[in-house]
Nucleic acid binder design. Structure first.
Lengths: 248, 248
DNA sequence: CGGCGACTTGAACAAGCTCAAAGTATGTGG
DNA sequence: CCACATACTTTGAGCTTGTTCAAGTCGCCG
């Protein structure tokens, strides 16, 4: 914990120029930027800020100040319906950008909450825009990341269009598995960072239906579940279940 | 229809510099650009291209070439599930941007189809990016428009999270009404450009449920329906119905 | 007029929701 | 370290809603 002033300086330097060395290099904004551009970006990024479980990066209605990249941990973003009912819009794993919901109006339409102890890199948005106007590569990269986010939203809509609850749940697990694999973690064994309630809200199902779905998949030997610990035993069958099965 | 060469030239000139005079000025990309920037933009925009009903602006998998702005008419964009089942992602009225779904991957994940005879302004994307790198105002405007699109997607997800079918239908009509009002058209009397099937697909309901919902609202005197012609009789009650009513 | 696509309506069924209760993990204070 | 409180999860039973299946109507265009 404690350290000499000299080592503090070293830490700071290392923190400041982390983008180039970051393990999430390819997932995050800096991908495809050259060394000079990376340095410029590094200068405005406040990296590895720790976030406690349950802490919020921003609230609904708060002005857009920064974009965030999950570094460790996991987040959810959700809109708050006027009657108090929330809708979970997305879950964010390391390397994924958070805060784009405010692009249209300069105010956040979502809140972002840490699901576990996490760290984020914080990118002040006005500074990002300033340096981006001189860096076409960064502009394009930003558009690309935004486009990925939109693809996720469309996938989300497609998932909720699915009729069967079990299909949605299977699809959810498949997608999560793939995301973990892309992070270099095992895709067949992982711990869910979110509650059943969060999952249900995300999928448009009540908590009991989610629980029953997990139990069913477990009974059928497709997955093994103990609380939030999940192991995918038969990826092929899970994929099969995730396909839309017409009732016709 | 026929005209002298001279008047053809005039037409061409008028077509080319339409952005500044366009009635959708405030809704579309050019809002908040100065005259010089508008001229630059006008130079790359191919405006008022006519599109037949059922014609597609692009297909799933086709490379991103242009963004489109609906000028007259209406469009739907939908993803094609691998099994042939489509999911309607959005409906596009005049002034709304089409084609952003390809931002993440340079290939379209959706197809865009005209629901009625329409016209579009076509903006070649690479040229847009080129001129945008020298125009911070256009960059910001582009981000803002993209952000609005994301807000729509989030609204869509929120809608599908709603439990009751009648709530979704009421919300759909309210939203459409407001969009028509923003176009300067009457918000209480309009013709739906899409089929019941499209609506059902968009809302995550089967066609029969949509039809029954319309009938119910009609019986209750909240709206009047004749085929695709809709008249909102009691906007207040419609809004009330659109609110999520907890079963608890 | 006839044919076709879009829409409406009815009846039976089933998936998922509600309500209720019990079981499990987790953290806190004594 | 244990007892307790809290939050999360699972499971069961009954019911509501939306789906499915089927039949019929409307409206448009050749």
């Amino acid at each position: 914990m404690s350290s000499s002033p000299a080592s503090n300086v070293v830490d700071l330097v290392r923190l400041r120029r982390s983008c180039a060395q970051c393990s999430l290099h390819q997932l995050c904004l800096p991908a495809a930027l050259d060394q000079t551009d990376l340095d410029t970006l590094d200068r405005i990024v406040r990296s590895r800020r720790p976030i406690r479980r349950g802490e919020r990066l921003f609230e609904v209605g708060s002005p857009l100040q920064s974009l965030y990249v999950a570094r460790d941990g996991a987040f959810k973003t959700s809109t708050l319906g006027e009657d108090g009912g929330a809708q979970v819009i997305a879950f964010h794993l390391p390397g994924e950008l958070i805060g784009l919901d405010a692009l249209g109006s300069d105010r956040h339409r979502c809140e972002a909450e840490a699901l576990e102890p996490s760290t984020v890199c914080e990118v002040p948005f006005d500074q990002l825009q300033t340096i981006a106007s001189g860096m076409p590569g960064l502009q394009q990269q930003l558009l690309r990341v935004i486009g990925r986010g939109m693809q996720n939203d469309h996938g989300h809509v497609g998932m909720m269009g699915r009729r069967q609850a079990i299909e949605r749940i299977a699809l959810f697990l498949m997608a999560l598995s793939e995301r973990y694999r892309n992070l270099g973690r095992p895709g067949d064994t992982f711990a869910l960072p979110m509650t059943r309630e969060d999952i249900g809200n995300y999928l448009g199902l009540v908590i009991e239906t989610v629980s029953r779905g997990f139990s069913k998949l477990s009974e059928d030997g497709v997955i093994a579940v103990r609380g939030r610990q999940v192991r995918i035993l038969q990826a092929g069958r899970l994929e099969e279940i995730a396909q839309p099965h017409d009732h016709g």
